[in-house]
């Protein structure tokens, strides 16, 4: 019952949150000193050309009229036309969503695969040299600028060693798009060359994204495992003579996983933040590069469109995390 209540109240708040977001971003992008119409028409445009286009696009209207139109468009699912590419923004975003999802999912997988075992080991062997090294690495992972880490990886693996490509998602255009996920699509086509290419292209950006996230997971897992180990419950089990290995896997890990799931929402936020920058460095054709380009080109409608999508994405992920959490750990339902 409480679970349902929580979900419902979140859903009810979703709409005003998004509306607020639209207003804020609309106001921000409206102060931009650049004239979108001139950007659209380019350096050869004449005054009558500009005037005609301004009226056509509604930029001659007062700000509130523009905002109202904007809401009307968004509700009807139309995010407008990008000033720069002159194509529908929703179309751009849809075509770029899989790239970003593929990258962030790969990064989450990688960070969980690295973070949880390392965190558990760090806790079990606490105060050993290994523990100290891991802690230094995990503190460092959070202090390193994502774009610089990206450059470092490019420097070593792509430029010096030449074992990884520098940028983009795949050589050429890749397999027939079905899901938009290069890895899945190449499996569907059973095209091993594409699969290989996709994997090698995603390695560096995913690693860049995964390292700070893995650092966070190591820290939480370590703390979580230590908490459980020192809890009376485990002490009791140990006193009962259960083998330590079983205790670790059965009791300790389960609890550690619960705390990690809770953190995934947080980690996802960090990942999306970093993805914006990392995609830019790797020319990854996802929503992050789209956002940075739109902002740099003062493409108002594209900026608003991106913000709505990413906002919705984060709200939905957080909701999913809360729901999952309420299942795994019914005590903690808030």
């Amino acid at each position: 019952m409480r679970r349902l209540e929580m979900i419902l109240s979140r859903l009810v708040w979703f709409v005003p949150t998004m509306a607020g977001l639209v207003i804020i971003v609309f106001l921000i992008s409206n102060v931009i000193p650049t004239d979108p119409v001139r950007v659209l028409l380019g350096e050869n445009a004449t005054a009558p050309q500009i005037e005609a286009m301004r009226i056509k696009l509604g930029y001659d209207q007062p700000v509130w009229v523009q905002l109202a139109r904007h809401f009307r468009d968004i509700v009807s699912g139309n995010l407008g036309i990008s000033i720069y590419s002159q194509r529908p923004i929703s179309e751009d975003l849809i075509s770029r969503l899989p790239a970003t999802l593929e990258l962030t999912l790969a990064a989450i997988t990688l960070s969980v695969a690295l973070g949880i075992p390392l965190g558990v080991i760090s806790a079990l062997k606490r105060n050993s040299l290994l523990d100290h090294i891991l802690r230094v690495i995990s503190v460092s992972g959070l202090a390193i600028a994502a774009f610089w880490l990206a450059l470092l990886l490019q420097f070593f693996f792509a430029m010096k060693l030449g074992v990884a490509p520098l940028n983009s998602r795949i050589d050429g255009f890749g397999p027939t798009p079905v899901t938009g996920f290069m890895i899945i699509d190449s499996l569907l086509d059973w095209d091993m060359e594409s699969l290989h290419s996709a994997l090698s292209h995603i390695a560096l950006p995913a690693l860049t994204l995964a390292l700070p996230a893995a650092a966070t997971i190591v820290r939480f897992t370590r703390a979580g495992v230590l908490d459980v180990i020192n809890s009376n419950h485990v002490l009791y089990q140990r006193a009962m003579g259960l083998p330590p290995g079983l205790i670790v896997w059965k009791y300790v890990l389960r609890n550690a996983l619960i705390s990690t799931v809770t953190q995934i929402g947080l980690i996802f936020g960090v990942l999306v933040t970093n993805a914006v920058i990392v995609e830019t460095v790797f020319d990854w054709p996802g929503m992050g590069t789209f956002a940075v380009q739109s902002i740099l080109q003062s493409d108002h409608k594209a900026i608003i469109g991106f913000t709505i999508w990413i906002g919705a994405l984060i709200v939905i992920v957080n909701l999913l995390v809360d729901i999952t959490h309420s299942f795994i750990d019914p005590r903690g339902t808030r």
Binding site: L114, F157, A164, P165, D171, L199, S200, A203
Partner: peptide
């Protein structure tokens, strides 16, 4: 542990090794 990290790096390298030019 070191071995795990090395193995991972090796896997990444292997996944990306011969970029066909």
């Amino acid at each position: 542990m070191k071995r795990t990290i090395l193995a991972l790096l090796a896997a990444i390298a292997a996944a990306s090794a011969p970029v066909v030019a």
